[in-house]
Nucleic acid binder design. Structure first.
Lengths: 342, 342
DNA sequence: TCTGCTTGGGAAACCGGTGTCATCATACCC
DNA sequence: GGGTATGATGACACCGGTTTCCCAAGCAGA
């Protein structure tokens, strides 16, 4: 026997006077085990500080104790929030997180992903938006038998494979708040094409206006791609309109920061001359001046829940089922006021 | 033979008409192998699309093909930059990245890390600042035979275990730039105690002033902890001084954004009434108004290089040795001007 | 021709767990 | 009391590679 490394299952078995299979049963909580045997083995495990070797388990089970985070999200803060939520769920478990950025739009993305999943035999993957919105990816996971959960701004899949927020509803609420303040000319800065979140948020915006009987000329809708610069550019155009909109809803905070930047560059005061609402509640929202009224997107909690779903033991019913729907809420700060004049 | 999964080494051996050990030799580039045997095996490997099973290799080699990123850095953008640099280096290799945040200050941090490294048998770890500055962590890696590279703002270890930037020099240069513009009352907003980067940057600042014979009263030095809020609070104090400083060097960009915020809140114009220089060149630097003059910290390149060091095959000398020192450079944007009056 | 050394390559053990199946004691049933 | 269901446990093969050790062939020198 080598004495160099950690104790092995053989050491435990020998000292406890049982076979290694029995030790294995203890580790895996097999129900058919005598109570005193179990206790004896557990005691030896505790004494030795034995921890099963993950590599050997991975080989025997043909499955690694690794959870993948697959993402193609350009926003650092969002990705970090997701990682934090995942790691919270994985903490004190046998699982580790491996991160896999993919290139949406690359023709080989699906093949690369397949190779990755098959090679590493991941226990499961968490799909972050926007790649989570790609049905082919989910199909791939199903085909090769890899557990998966898709995160998104709307229900994308069956409940066990999905964690969603209610972006549409939340934006409808935020827009109604602007309407209630007396705004009638409200601009929208949309997200990139192909992002479900962009569609949902825009839909919520349009629903609120339509329900209130407020007209929405196409000129009040500007395209953005979730970056600060695109928000800036879009705002330039909106602020050139005559009459000028008195409020802008931006589909995320970074673009909202760009809007604020554009307003201040042309001497407009926020919120006196222009009200702004963002979406996400990233740190930047609280840091710019005035602090941004925005919709809080509980992305870290969503990720935590998604990870728990991934590692959940289908059988155990004593644990509460993880929720699949998370509610976004409006955070009122200083970037909204009633329009000065109309 | 099972026909369900990917081809195994046995399949390759059988079809090529050799033993599995010979296939293993081909994979591991063993030198003692006939050329025709090698070619034949390589051809079969190509035909079958055979990829060695990482789990089996990990078990046999007692070493996983996983590179760990150990960090306790609160800045999302920095962590993402490092991840991106690492993944660039690991792309198209057999390695994957696992992320491990640790709690600096936790009493069990070292034990947790040891358990993690021993359990997962990582191939190597990349230590991000500030945890990379903890000598106990490096010692731990050495003790359990885990490869490691420490990233930092100064040389922290021997060259193969270190990738550093020249923060002190860079800040000296940035400060000299402020002095050359005519500033004489320059405030400093320092980083958190215990961060080597904070010490280096402050030292560079003090060196420049001292060499120029400019006095630095303690009142011009304010403490910060790298967050926007701390920069805001520190700036409030500095801007209350009489006479007011005409320029501020902030040890990172987030705090610099806080300074700008504070200045604008009290009606000061940047850069006319106050010049500001930051450090890092995170996206926020280009996004605030006016765009921030700052020192670019090539953290992603550093991480890439660090990862390449980790997976470098000590023997292969045909590859160029990865550099251990990266130079930070001043990025001039719009937040610095000559003082209006003095 | 025989010895000695180098070289290509294979058999079998091993890494540290898990699956399958057999074994054995006990309990239960009629 | 015999037959059988049941529960607890172990023996052994297996996951898919690598390592150790050994053998056979080729070739030089004596």
């Amino acid at each position: 026997m080598q004495r160099t490394g950690q104790p092995t299952i053989n050491d435990v078995a020998r000292i406890a006077g049982v076979s290694k299979k029995t030790v294995s049963r203890v580790i895996n909580r097999s129900p058919l085990l005598g109570d005193d045997t179990r206790r004896r083995v557990e005691e030896v495990i505790g004494d030795l500080g034995y921890i099963p070797n993950p590599q050997a388990r991975a080989l025997a089970l043909r499955r690694n104790f690794l959870i993948g985070l697959v993402h193609d999200n350009p926003n650092a803060q969002t990705v970090m929030n997701v990682q934090q939520g995942m790691l919270e769920a994985l903490h004190d478990t046998e699982f580790e997180m491996v991160v896999r950025p993919v290139d949406r739009g690359s023709a080989t993305m699906l093949d690369d992903l397949r190779r990755f999943l098959e090679r590493q035999r991941l226990y499961g993957v968490l799909l972050m938006p926007p790649v989570s919105e790609n049905d082919m990816v989910a199909k791939l996971c199903r085909a090769i038998g890899c557990r998966y959960v898709r995160m998104g701004s709307a229900a994308l899949d069956d409940s066990p494979h999905m964690v969603a927020s209610n972006d549409r509803e939340a934006v409808r609420g935020a827009t109604e708040y602007l309407l209630a303040q007396g705004h009638k000319r409200i601009g929208l800065i949309g997200g990139p094409h192909g992002f479900r979140s962009a569609r949902e948020r825009r839909a919520g915006f349009e629903e609120a206006l339509s329900q209130a009987g407020v007209s929405l000329p196409r000129s009040l809708i500007a395209d953005g791609n979730y970056t600060f610069e695109s928000g800036l550019v879009a705002a330039e155009r909106l602020l050139d309109l005559v009459p000028r909109p008195t409020a802008v809803f931006s589909c995320n905070d970074e673009m909202a920061a760009g809007v604020m930047h554009a307003a201040q560059m042309r001497g407009l005061s926020v919120p006196r001359d222009l009200s702004i609402i963002g979406f996400d509640d990233t740190p930047i929202a609280a840091h710019i001046w005035p602090p941004l009224t925005t919709v809080r997107w509980p992305i870290a909690s969503m990720a935590r829940s998604a990870a728990l779903k991934l590692i959940a033991n289908g059988e155990e019913d004593d644990e509460v089922e993880e929720p699949s729907l998370f509610l976004s809420t409006l955070i009122r700060r200083g970037s909204v006021a009633s329009p000065a004049i109309d």
